[in-house]
């Protein structure tokens, strides 16, 4: 069973985000970059399936050279090879453009399954996975918390939580599955894994290597444009409800909820 996992590199979730002076992007200096946590679930699931069915796991990343670090992390966890799509023209691309580049890199690979995270924790768009499936002409099942590949390796059942219930979707292969939290507990990279990782193949591809026209990428090629980034409003100070007795306080609270907050 050959599996492809797409990896995005995102700012560490603990990063304090600062908006850049153009009001459309963030300051990237001093950001600690990590593998998108949802993609990490995808890597783990792929490795578990490989352990069961054999085959190879290929991780595909896109972005500047620093993305190599996240790909190496996936290799250290146990993936077999990596592809990095890197090209200055990609800077500022939207999700659809990213999906196009990924599709171009993946279409010639042999695969039975593709995993992506259900969304990137940076922009929260959540469309790259579905777009990629569409471009490759394969089915797509989103938000998987459990993936059961049939013993014969020909179909898959995917569990998705819906309003306290579980929806089980069956699909033939190949299929693209987007990983949701709860799918698994990703492993830590072991020391032998880390040492082996540097010897594993990591191919770099530019847009022209993939036969793509760079005009369709970057800021110019965007179908979706960012108009403005604004920080969340600062939380207003809390208010202590005054009153001599609990009854007085309760009455004052009710008045405030009714007249000021207007929720009751």
């Amino acid at each position: 069973m050959n599996i492809v996992v797409c990896i995005k590199q995102v700012p560490d979730t603990e990063t304090q985000i600062k908006i850049a002076s153009d009001n459309k992007s963030i300051v990237t200096d001093d950001i600690k970059w990590v593998m998108n946590p949802y993609d990490e679930f995808g890597v783990e699931e792929a490795l578990r399936l490989k352990e069961k069915f054999g085959g190879e796991v290929t991780v595909v990343g896109l972005g500047p050279k620093r993305v190599t670090e996240s790909l190496r992390t996936a290799l250290a966890m146990g993936a077999d090879k990596a592809v990095l799509i890197t090209d200055d023209a990609l800077e500022g691309s939207d999700s659809l453009a990213v999906a196009k580049a990924l599709a171009a890199a993946i279409k010639d690979l042999e695969y039975d399954l593709i995993f992506t995270g259900q969304r990137g924790v940076d922009d929260d768009m959540g469309v790259a996975g579905a777009s990629l499936a569409e471009l490759l002409g394969i089915p797509h099942v989103a938000l998987a918390v459990k993936v059961e590949v049939a013993e014969d390796g020909k179909s898959v059942k995917v569990h998705r939580p819906v309003e306290g219930q579980t929806l089980v979707i069956e699909s033939g292969l190949p299929v693209l599955i987007t990983a949701q939290k709860g799918l698994n507990e990703p492993r830590y990279a072991s020391l032998p894994g880390i040492m082996k990782a540097k010897k594993k193949p990591l191919d770099e591809k530019s847009l022209s290597d993939l036969g793509l026209d760079s005009a369709q990428f970057g800021q110019e090629g965007r179908k979706v444009k960012v108009l403005e980034l604004t920080p969340p409003p600062e939380r207003a100070a809390g208010k202590i409800v005054e009153g001599e007795t609990p009854q007085e306080k309760a009455a004052e609270l009710a008045r405030l909820l009714h007249e000021e907050a207007k929720v009751i």
Binding site: E69, R72, T73, Y188, A189, L191, I194
Partner: peptide, 17 residues
């Protein structure tokens, strides 16, 4: 080195998790 950083990260993740 990048390998040393990766080792540190793995240990840190183990520590946190």
């Amino acid at each position: 080195t990048s390998e040393q950083k990766m080792i540190a990260q793995s240990a840190e993740e183990f520590g946190q998790g």
